[in-house]
Design a protein around this nucleic acid. Structure first.
Lengths: 233, 233
DNA sequence: TATTTTTAAGAATGATAATTCTGATTTGAA
DNA sequence: TTCAAATCAGAATTATCATTCTTAAAAATA
């Protein structure tokens, strides 16, 4: 399904201090290495199958391991999947912080352009995990929670910065508009990953800039309304 | 999961002339009634579970029927699910044609406003089916195909009408913008149905008008650029 | 009414995969 | 080096459901 090259994104260092419910703490080096292998192979497999199609036996075979080893690390399949999401999210969180701390933007277009581009890039790198998480998203199991929190982190970083580009009298109405703009951004990206409706794909260079333009325009339209200009139609 | 009242949307009349692969033609009235009951109960169940969670035995029990009866109608579960999607799509198709034929719009805002409102309404009425179809959307099984076709029908009706509100010199670039606008519309609605990210929901009255405004603004921005006005940022 | 076709019941079957269990093997600290 | 704790191997178990099969009932047909 996914034609992008798949790299091993996780290494032993990233396990440092990482814990997740249903994942037994590893006391020996070999088990830490196994966990990393399982995570990376899990990510690779999720480019082709979803969570239901992810067979523990296949996963273990591909990592030169056994189901016994798997179950001495993880309580069950759900716990594995949850841990996999969590460790990816930990990395993403770091990226987000770094992005917002290091950069400063001169215009709203630049800021939102960077946000949309960054999001699209991240989706490309984690297409399999996102697709699998979406497919299992469900009231009870809450398989989407880690990724939802990631989106909320992104918004909480972007929101105050966006407001600095808007006149103070527009701030009130702008918050709703900004939130909808992000809902459209993530909705559109999720939809591309899941059903690939076309014509715009994650690989298409126009996708992120176009979405960014739509977001910016929508947010600015509220600005114009707060000026008393009235509807533009 | 879904708190909306669930009505029986299908009746015997809608089965007239309806056929789907893997669905045996019913020669007796009792089997036609059974199919309708299965469809309606299936739709109701899909508000709470997805396709995997939809148990044939439960479905049959709830319709006062048996698995034997089910399998003398449908080749297998997939065939049932596909037929259910198809018959709902048949109705939706009719609605779309009717909407576009009966109405005429005086402004672009009105047209797109009506399209977004109509889409959001339809999603509310078919939340369970949409969610289940999305969750199973997958390269091979192509569980999304019927709904994808529905979206394309919507676009093919809207596109030429939208163009009539734009100056001819803007038409070329506008097509891409219109398509992305629809990708954002359906993406956002799909995402609401699937992960309900908030703050905007299907029930929120502001959702459809807001999305419509974003779509209109984005499409018009291309118009302004074709005038030679350059980027607005 | 006789008989053929269609449909329904519901127990039995079968396939798939997650999970458990028991007995080795390895590790790392003393 | 020793040994208790940790880990691993892999066969066996289990649970879940879709699907099949056989027999019975109902409807259509003549």
């Amino acid at each position: 399904m996914n034609t992008l090259p798949v790299r091993n994104v996780l290494n032993a260092g990233m396990l440092e201090g990482f814990a997740a419910t249903g994942m037994r703490p590893a006391h020996q080096a070999r088990s830490r290495e196994l966990v990393i292998r399982l995570f990376n192979e899990g990510l690779a497999l999720l480019n082709d199958v979803d969570f239901d199609g992810l067979s523990i036996e296949t996963l273990c075979h591909r990592t030169g391991s056994t189901v016994g080893a798997f179950y001495s690390r993880f309580e069950n399949k759900d716990a594995f999947v949850n841990a996999l999401q969590r460790i990816v999210v930990v990395g993403a969180r770091r990226e987000i912080y770094a992005n917002y701390e290091n950069a400063s933007w001169e215009t709203l277009d630049q800021l939102i352009g960077a946000v949309a581009r960054g999001a699209a890039l991240w989706y490309r790198r984690h297409e399999g995990l996102v697709r699998a998480s979406l497919r299992r998203a469900n009231g009870e199991r809450d398989m989407w929670t880690p990724l939802r929190e990631l989106g909320e982190l992104n918004i909480s970083c972007a929101l105050p910065r966006i407001l600095t580009f808007l006149p103070p009298q527009a701030h009130d109405g702008a918050v709703d508009r900004i939130r909808l703009a992000f809902q459209m951004l993530f909705g559109t990206l999720n939809n591309i990953v899941q059903v690939n409706p076309g014509p715009f794909t994650l690989e298409d260079r126009r996708t992120a800039p176009f979405i960014a333009e739509a977001m910016t325009g929508f947010i600015r339209a509220g600005d114009r309304r707060a000026d008393g200009a009235g509807p533009t139609g």
